[in-house]
Write a protein that binds this DNA or RNA. Structure first.
Length: 611
RNA sequence: CGGGGCGUAGCGUAGUCUGGUAGCGCGCCUGGUUUGGGACCAGGAUGUCGGGAGUUCAAAUCUCUCCGCCCCGACCA
């Protein structure tokens, strides 16, 4: 199928001249939106009429590459902490992402709606989240002192809409989505639009007569998400995720892979296994515990209070030491044992313990062990002891002696202390066996740009979203929800695509696809004519072309076109023009190439196809 | 909220310790010379020094207070 080379897949209508517009308005087959779009094309795609506001130096507050570049390129302007204005250039990028998201949502049969950003408290009180959600929710009062919030998410609203409409299983499944501004009063907004308080999100909600229906939609959403991020030109990975506070079961996060990502992801290069490190299982080691060789004996470790210090002092690898952590939840204190070189995974530990916990206070710790932190160990403890799986293969290990300045050496389970309870308590590390048995895990960092959940009936039950089934029985609808951080994707895409000159955005999301840079526009009639000709021709082909018709020096034009991330560039100069040629250079190409003026349109179209 | 830091022209900053009435680079405006990688020369505009109060003959500078912002920790698209 031959699609027009326009990125969003929409057909653009070209009009030969403005006079035709008057006629078009009376023509019902051409809607005014498209005419408006045409007008804006005419008036914005010339750099002299556009609004470019670039900076040579980035504002001091920006730390992350994407944040610095977005400010420098004039994509966004800050209004306050976590609040940004999308400037014309940045908005083009945002809109292109939205277009792809919309297209794929529509493809899987989701229907677009637009729900209120301001929501009454009563709805949230129905699910109990008015109090649960916490200070992240911006609560506001109207003139009658009625309580509202600025929506941080829309489960309550959409469930309310659907419960009023759905009577029969015949109306299901139903998936609604919206692209809308959300507000979450983040504790610490940072990194520009990466973690803003106000942000644009696509959120979809599906309703089903049964769990099987939910699973089907969940799968097609999973596939749609994969298509979206592929079309956006991003390197991403879907990972199994913790369901977190939103509740329900079954969940995947979609991460754009970038070193600056806030999440750690464990993945297997040999298979498609991937999980958030919060969830990735550290499988039981295949190794069998060695036979005890040494007798347990006490050694002086004066002042050595960390695994590292003890390891250095005894000249032993940290993997030979057992780390003992005392945690408390309420009145109960539990000892957790980890290999010295491993890190506690608090989510796993909380699941094992069945509740939230924190590290024990020093006073509690002294009461239980009789010594200060730094020398505690499991030998002789009378509290519950849970060991990580990898600890169970250790023999003749070192641990604290519960006596300040002393450690035990040659400690063995079964002989020197009872066999403990065993659980998966630690974060996986690079090189751990993959839980699917297909090789070893690697770690990388990711930016969470999408999250899909099987909510099941958490919200529908709380809000009695019911329908009648084939037997005429009242049933509670199964629900799924599917989010994409649209504005965050802009930042994530830049994190993944930049160089020392600026952004190198994928063509699908770049603000413009092609820059036409004339050399000496005001001097040369030939340059002017060729630039205009190509500009009109590409415009009519539906290509987002920016003609840099400003009276700027060449270096300035190049620098700005590169900074703002336009993927393709044609330079029209007399030098090449006398040979009947123009110069083409891709944003990441090392060198420009001469192309004949007749062939250059086809040449560029070919380049667009490849990216 | 806890810990650290900052607030001087649109952006980047000096001056603050040691009080004497604000400087530099980029950008902007005018004129000229330039014009294939963020030009050069000359001239120019822009500052309630975050707000308020206090100390002082005198405050960007010292004191108090409020506000805003950034960085490190707990939340999440």
């Amino acid at each position: 199928m031959s699609k027009p080379p326009c990125e969003c897949g929409e057909k653009k209508i070209s009009y030969p001249n403005p006079g035709f517009l008057c006629f078009s308005i009376r023509n019902p087959s051409i809607n005014s939106v498209k005419i408006a779009a045409y007008l804006s094309v005419e008036y914005t795609m010339r750099a002299s009429h556009f609004f470019l506001s670039t900076l040579k130096e980035a504002p001091a507050e920006a730390e992350l590459v994407s944040h610095r570049l977005m400010l420098r390129a004039g994509y966004i302007k800050k209004l306050g902490s976590g609040l940004y204005t999308w400037m014309p250039l940045g908005l083009r990028v945002l809109r292109k992402i939205e277009a792809v998201v919309r297209d794929e949502m529509n493809t899987v049969g989701a229907l677009e709606v637009l729900m209120p950003a301001v929501q009454p408290a009563e709805l949230w009180q129905e699910t109990g989240r008015w109090d649960q959600f916490g200070p992240q929710m911006l609560k506001i009062r109207d003139r009658h002192a009625r309580e509202f919030c600025f929506g941080p998410t829309h489960e309550e609203v959409v469930t309310d809409v659907v419960r009023r409409e759905i009577k029969s299983y015949r109306q299901l499944p139903l998936t609604l989505y919206q692209i809308q501004t959300k507000f979450r009063d983040e504790i610490r907004p940072r990194f520009g639009v990466m973690r803003a308080r106000e942000f644009v999100m696509k959120d979809a909600y599906s309703f089903h007569a049964d769990f099987a229906g939910l699973q089907t939609t969940y799968q097609s959403m999973y596939a749609a998400y994969s298509r979206i991020f592929t079309r956006l030109g991003l390197k991403f990975r879907a990972v199994a995720a913790d369901t977190g506070a939103i509740g329900g079961s079954g969940s995947h996060e979609f991460h754009v892979l970038a070193d600056s990502g806030e999440d750690a992801i464990a993945w297997c290069p040999q298979s498609d296994y991937a999980a958030n490190i919060e969830l990735a299982e550290a499988v039981a080691p295949a190794a069998v515990r060695g036979v005890a060789q040494e007798a347990m004996h006490k050694i002086a470790t004066p002042g050595y209070c960390s695994i590292e210090a003890v390891s250095v002092a005894l000249n032993l690898p940290a993997a030979q030491l057992v780390k003992t952590l005392l945690v408390q939840s309420g009145e109960t204190v539990v000892a957790l044992l980890l290999r010295g070189d491993h890190q506690l995974n608090e989510i796993k530990a909380a699941k094992v313990l069945g509740q939230e916990f924190r590290l024990a206070d020093e006073a509690v710790l002294r009461t239980v062990t009789g010594c200060a932190p730094g020398s505690i160990g499991p030998v002789g403890l009378s509290i519950r002891v849970i060991a990580d799986r990898s600890v169970m293969t250790m023999s003749d290990f070192v641990c604290g002696a519960n006596e300040e300045g002393y450690h035990w050496r040659g400690v063995n389970f079964g002989r020197d202390l009872p066999e403990p309870e065993v659980a998966d308590l630690r974060n996986v590390v690079s090189g751990d066996p993959s839980p699917d048995g297909q090789g070893e895990l690697a770690l990388c960092r990711g930016i969470e740009v999408g999250h899909i959940f099987q909510l099941r009936t958490t919200y529908s039950a709380a809000m009695s979203c019911q329908f009648l089934d084939e037997q005429g029985q009242s049933q509670i609808a199964e629900m799924g929800c599917y989010g994409i951080g649209v504005s965050r994707i802009v930042a994530a895409a830049i994190e993944q695509n930049f160089d020392d000159r600026g952004m190198c955005l994928p063509a699908a999301i770049a603000p413009f696809t092609l820059a036409i840079v004339p050399v000496g526009l005001r001097k040369s009639e030939a340059v002017r004519e060729m630039s205009e000709r190509l500009y009109v021709e590409f415009s009519r082909l539906g290509i987002d072309v920016l003609l840099d018709d400003r009276d700027e020096r060449l270096g300035v034009m190049f620098a700005e076109m590169e900074l703002i991330g336009i993927p393709h560039r044609l330079v029209i100069g007399e030098r090449a023009l006398v040979a009947g040629e123009v110069e083409y250079q891709g944003r990441t190409d090392l060198q420009a190439q001469r192309v004949s003026t007749e062939g250059c349109v086809a040449w560029v179209l070919e380049k667009l196809k490849l990216r």
